[in-house]
Every structure is written in C-alpha cells, then in structure tokens.
Design a binder for these strands. Sequence first.
RNA 1: GCCCAGAUGGCGGAAUUGGUAGACGCGCUAGACUCAAAAUCUGGUUUUCGCAAGGGAGUGCAGGUUCGAUUCCUGUUCUGGGCACCA
Length: 931
Amino acid sequence: MEYTFRTIEKKWKEYWKEHRTFSVSNHSPKPKYYVLDMFPYPSGAGLHVGHPLGYIASDIFARYKRLKGFNVLHPMGFDAFGLPAEQYAIETGQHPIKTTEQNINRYREQLDNIGFCYDWERAVRTSDPSYYKWTQWIFLKLFHSWYDRNTQKARPIAELISIFEIDGNANIPCPADEQICLDGNCWKGLSVEEQRDILMKYRLAYLGFADVWWCEALGTVLANDEVVNGVSERGGFPVEKRRMRQWFLRITEYAERLLDGLETLDWTEAMKEMQRNWIGKSIGAEIKFVVEQASDKAITVFTTRPDTIFGADFLVLAPEHSLVDDITTPAQQSEVNAYREYVRTRSERERISEVKLVSGCFTGSFAINPITQRPIPIWIAEYVLAGYGTGAIMAVPSGDQRDHLFAKHFNIPITNIFGARYSGEEAYMAKEGTLENSGFLSGIEISKAVKMAVDAIVEAGVGQGKVNYRLRDAGFSRQRYWGEPFPIVYKEGIAFAIDELSNHSIGEQSTLPILLPEVESYQPASSGEGPLANISDWVNTPVGQRETSTMPGYAGSSWYFLRYMDPQNDHEFAGRKATDYWREVDVYVGGTEHAVGHLLYSRMWTKALYDLGFISFQEPFKKLINQGMIQGSSRFVYRVHGTNQFVTYSRRNEMQVDEIHVDVSLVDGLLLDQKRFKAWRPEFANAEFLLEDDGSYICGVAVEKMSKSKYNVVNPDDIVAQYGADTFRMYEMFLGPIDVSKPWDTKGIEGVHRFLKKLWRLYVDEQKGWIVNQELPNAQELQVIHRTIKKIGEDIERFTLNTSVSQFMICVNELASLTCHKQRVLEPLAILLAPFAPHLAEELWQQLGHSTSIMDASFPDYEEKYITENSKKYPVAVNGKTRVELEFPLDMPEEMVKQAVLSHPIIMKWLEGKAPKKIIFVKGKMINLVV
RNA sequence: GCCCAGAUGGCGGAAUUGGUAGACGCGCUAGACUCAAAAUCUGGUUUUCGCAAGGGAGUGCAGGUUCGAUUCCUGUUCUGGGCACCA
C-alpha cells in the first residue's frame, strides 16, 4: 500500500466536517487558549503560497495546545472592507458586495484545502451588517466618552457634563485646546451649540480638521498609496493637500498607557521599540515668544532642548501654522503665499526626509527671545510639521543639524553656545559638556542646564515643562463608499449621534446598524465627499444630514478578536461571559507591517472598552509572533534585442538581450520547457532558441516579491494537488524560521514529500500492508523517540518549526535504519506529527486501532532517562583549533580527563613537548589547551 | 532622511546560554536495483594545497573583547519592513 495522500486527505477533511471536530465551546472544564491569525483582506488575486505561512504555524500551535489539554479557540475571518474592492467597483461597475463575496469564497476554498483547524462557525467578516453594527456601536461609545486624565481612564461624556455644571472645567483641562476655561455658571450660560462644540473637544471620537490629498482632475480624495511621485497614480494628475472636516480618535490620550502596557507584553523587543518610537515620548518645554511687531501675539514653541535657548537664532513655523497670516508683513506676503502653495504639493514624508534641498521663507516679522530679549526672525519651512508639538520650533543652529543647514543656506547669523565643540561646519548635537555664551547657563553641564532652563522659563512666566508625544490622533474618516457608515446626523451643522435623536425624527435607518446604502456609481460627490453624498434620499433625514464619510479599514480590525468569542450575539458585541472566559489572545501571529497601525489601534480600543467596563482586560494580544514573507523566485529568459530569438543563461552576455519574466510554471528548476513556452503567449509561438551545449535552455533567477506581473506566483492549490496538504504544510515550515523572509522554491518540496513517504513505510509495507507490531522497544529506539518528543515540544513552544521538521526527518531516518515498526514507538510519533501533517496522522491513528480523532489524544511526555548519555565525545582544541575528538564518561573527574588528553599522541604532537599554560575544560562541551 | 530587522556552502537553512561552523533538505555527483525508466537504497559534496596522511582559510566588510566569537562591542556596506488614507 502506497501513501495515497489524495484519498487520505479527502477522507479526513470530510470526517472533520461531519464530526465538527474543530467546533469550539465557550464552556469547558479545560483551561482556555486563544490562538489567532491576523485575518486577511480577501484580494481578487487569491492566496499565494506566501499567505498561509503564518496560518500553518498557528494551526500547528493550536493543534499542539489542544493535544496538551487546552480548550483552544482558533478562528478565522475576513477584513472585507477596503480600497481595492472599491477601486475594482469603479473600474468594472460591479458591487463590492459581490466581488468581496467571490473573493471570500475563493479564499475559504484555498484555506480549507490546506486542512486548517479553524472553527468556521465563528467566522466574521467586517462588511457584514451584523458585524459592523458593533463597529458602529463601539464608535458611539467612543463618541460618548472622554478621557479623565486624573483617573487615567475613559468615562461617559454624561459624567463630564455633570462636572461642568458644578465646577466647569477647572480640574479638567481640554485636550484639544488648553485655553478653554469655564466655570459652572459659565457652562450653563452657553448655547447648546457652544456646549456641544466644547464637548467635541473632549470626546474620544471627535470631529476635527486634517489635510487630505485632493486631486482636482479626478474630483476625489486620494489615499497616500494612490499618490505616486507627487501625482495621482491613476492618470498622473496633480494633487494637493486640502483641509477637510474629519473624524478622529483621541488615541493621544492613551499615549502613556500604550507605552506602559508594552512592558506587560510578550512581544519581540523590536516590535515594542517600533511602538515606542511611534508614540515618541519626548520631555522638554513649551516656550512662548512674543511677536515684536504685535505684542498681543505670541508663538509657543516646543523644544526638547530648553537649555539651548541662548542659541536660538530664529523661529520656524509650520507653513500651515494659524499665526502665519497674522505675522507675515506685506512685503513678504507674496513670497509666503508662493511658498505655502509649494508646500501643499509636498507629502509629509518628502518634507521630513528632504536633506539636500533646504527650503523656507521669511515672514518679515521678528519674535523676542523671552530669556535674552533678543529679537530673532520668524521663518516658515516645510521641515516643521503642523501636527507635531506646537507646529513651531526655536531653531538653534549651533546645536541642531537641521537648523544649522537652514541657517547656512539663508545666511542667518549663528550664535555659538558650545565654544570649541562647535566647529562652525556642523552642529554640535551631543548632550555632553558645558554650555557657553549662555548667560546664567554658561559653564553649566548640559544635563543640569535643561532643568535650570525650565525653571527659569517657568519663573519668567513664559512657558513650562512639557511632555510631548509624536503620536497623533488617528484620522477616522474616509471619503469612500466601501466602509462602515457613521451613525451620525448633522443637525444644523452640529454632529449628533443617532442615539441622541429620537427614532421618529431621523426616519428610516434610525437604529444600529446604519446600513450601507446601494449607490448608482462609486464615483465621489463633486464636493470632495464620498459616494454616499450622492444619495440624497439617504443623506437627508427630517432632522438633518447624515455623515457621508465611512470608517477606515482599521475600524473593523481593531476589535474583531472579541467578536470571535461570541460571534452570533445580536444584542452585544460579545457577551461578558464569553469575553471573561476567553480574555486576551494568547498567541497572535502576523506580519511586522502591522507593527504600529493595527496593533496600536487594537490596543487603544481594548483599553477604551476596558475603561468603560465592557471587558475585563486591557491588552488584546499577550504574545505576538512575527511572520516573514515568502518571496517569489522569478525566472527570466533573454530575448536577443529586436528579434524573436531567446538565448540561454550562460550565453546571454554574447549579445544585446532583453530580460523577460517567464512564468515559473513553465520552468523545472532552471530548465525551460521550450514547447510550453512557445504555447504560453502568441508572440512566442515562433520563438527560436540559442541553447546550451546539451540542448537545454537555462533560465536566469531573481528573488522578488510574489506578484502576478512577475509571473512568479505559486498557488497553494497546485502544490496541494501535486503533493498533498500535509507535505505543503511541512514544507512551508521547513523553509526556515517563521519570522524571516525567504524565497519559495517548489523544487525543494520533494525532499519533504519523500520524508512523509518514508515515514508511511514505517507503518505500512507496499506488499505486506500494515506492519506495526507489538514488540517492546529497545534502548536505541526509546532514545530516538524520546529525543524527538522533547525536541518537537520545545520547538513548537518556541515557534521554531523548521527545526521540528528536521527532527522528524532525523527520527524517521534513524527508525528506518533500525527497522523499527513497533507500536510503542510509532504511536507517540503519530501524535507528534498530528499538528504538522494532520491528515496523515489521523489515518495512522485510525489504523493503529483508535476510533476517535487524533486531536483527542494527548501529547506524549518524554522521559529524561531514555535520552541522557553517559559519555561525551569532546572536541579537544589546541589554541582554539580542534585537533582531535576524544570520548570520556561524563562523570570522569576533571583531573583524569586532563591526564588522558595530555597523554594522547595527537595532542602531544601539537604541544611539541611544551606544557600547556592553561587547560580549559567545560564539562559536556569541550576541552581547550592554551600553549 | 528617520525607526526596526536581516546577511552563514551552488540553494533554503542548523548551531537554543560565548564552546566541534555547515545538522536537515534541495541541487550536483558516483554507485546498487532495472532490458530501460520511475521509485527506492548506499556513498561523496564549504573552499584551497596535497596521491594520501595531513595542513591553511572560512559565517557581508573593517576593527575590538576573549583561552575560544556565526553568537558580545564599535564602525561600515547591502537587502527587506514601516513612516500615520494599502491592508
């Protein structure tokens, strides 16, 4: 009997489905374990072999945990809202619901093909009204909440109103505008409009303004992705920034907790570091500079180096800064206007990464340095961003390279406050040494001067110490169709949540979910609003207009892990019993590209839901496993320029050639199938070949991203059809460590396939059939299997699954050479294999005489006594170079070992009669003689 | 530009805590079985000098620490990911 993987895999897939083997209950006496994959966006291209890498790893882990006695939640779903589906709709007129449905079905088939143990009964898709109802619901909770800095938690906005009615905002500074100051009476005297305006400045989901890419020619707002080299990707039209009213999430209030929470997480240090840098906490000071010509106007700068205030030679404002208009002198007005026009065409990335080109513009005004009383010029420049700090800096050219380049370029005189350490050529950026030429700070160590400077600033009443975060509030509006509609209606321009208005007054669509309406066209509205603005029946309600933006992609993905816990619940986003049972995700597997987006937003949503009392934990993902990418391995043919002749790899330099991607399926290793190549595309039908001496055509190779256009995409379905899902799963793991990128090479899969066939032959003989016997294993066999049990268990715990596959190979090679067919060895081996090659393991398990799924077996324990060796073959080195291997019992006294080593002829030869200076003996490791 | 990773044979990779560099597999190669092929099995395979025994070099590059460095430190080059509206 051969290893007939097709029959076996089909049989067990049907068995699992029929017996609901992977259906998970929220009630179990077993301890819980939650294993989650980052859910996919179902693109039209389907899955390629790179996508399932992480899914296979987490599937192995989930199955392992189940064998270890846990009740394992391992769900999958789809992040189904997004730009590509909408783009496709614009191009083809097909409704995103339809194309998304098709794509999801395709993904589902491809995933099922690989034999994952997902509980599909729990599947979610973010574009389902039954799902986005709760995305909208959470948005409303954020809208109805504010962040209490005193208790460091979110609270209902109703409680804020109660406080305002008594004390005003005396103890609750406004996060959006610290100038706002009111007492209880003052609050009560405000109009509803004024009150709501102030409340908006406290809400966790709030309306503000942000710059978006506007493309006049396309009449639409573009995503960063759709802007390439300063023009629209579609059509190449000019784009510019336009300020629009947008929803935001006040994630900045959570900055400190997001930072602190990292300490409790089992994530890689690199991942935590990226989040820390993104949050970007910096400690410094805000300093107020009064404008010389208009003493009622002041510019507040944020600096991390208040100690350098004596070296401040000019101020730089972001070109968008609200004071620019006020301070620009008539003489400079046209230059300032022109410069601001230019900046509107620049992306933030370009603005901050530009190093060669220094640009800026003088406003004509001067500001008074509040400590030195010296007037200094006020400039605007693109390297200062409106959204960071106060949108204004004090430039210290002798202490900051950026400022230094600027001063040199515009011939602004530089004050040296570092003496000889400032070269005049480059700024002195180090925070060591003493300050000079700095008034009362002269001669003071920089480390001490920072605090002294802040004290002086506070004393002078011109500023204060300040902690600043690079983190910005998260833009939450998209001028798009394919996303969650907002449950918001504008009544005379004021935003109301639908639950603040009576059902009657809004008319239809007055309760959650606010359904995404059908549209005629996916083109944006003329105003720059999204396509929803075109549906006047939907937009207009008896009380006012609905919000026409939709929510961004990360809305649905910020909380989906909670929905899996209780996916059918139609009166809560997830029942408290369910969330209390499953709690946070124990292991989350996904790519590092989500390091700061999705992973930060999910953390914030979790904290907000925790604060508001809806869940009992405040971090969503306890342990994070990063998964690398599988790259494509492209193949090239070389066409002689201007002809239809193709020259083989080794001769390509003999003539002028064009390198052309050739479909990898037409190539076996490097060998081109010439016949199929001719049939591939009409223009190659009459191709002629200039071949190697042996008549073969050898292709060129490059490792690139897997993509359709490079003809290097490998579909898992094809691999599964040819080798089986079990081989595919093990091969993906065998390729290398989970977290690094590596190229796909179909050729290599045969080794893994051979291994599974070899393993099969331990159990089944081609002629005799089932050959497992009941003999007792000997010491060697016990050592092999117990070593394997140990290694596989440790590897899975550490997610080093590539070495597990190696260990399986070693184990099978050894058992084969021992001709071991003993049930007591092969039964535990089948269980070890179950997470990796589940179909095959089930088949073996059944034939071993079991009537239930192998998933209900227990992972075997190893016994140290079968593994331990009592002697060690020591490498013996002289001066670090290994000269001989000598075997000694592990319990042999050190002195005796040394004696034996010294009297060994090879060692004596290397010692040349000299006595070694030192003998290093590391028990169980090595011996080194130093001469 | 900034932040975070990575670099080891012809290829994917192993070396878990500073202790035999190249496990395991691919590829290549020699052989067994076969009329032949497939499948399977056995041996060889970092490189260099050498008939061999044996020696030299070697983990991107340049230094350093150490009895000993793929592993730690400093600098540097290249590649990948992210940089706030791709998901």
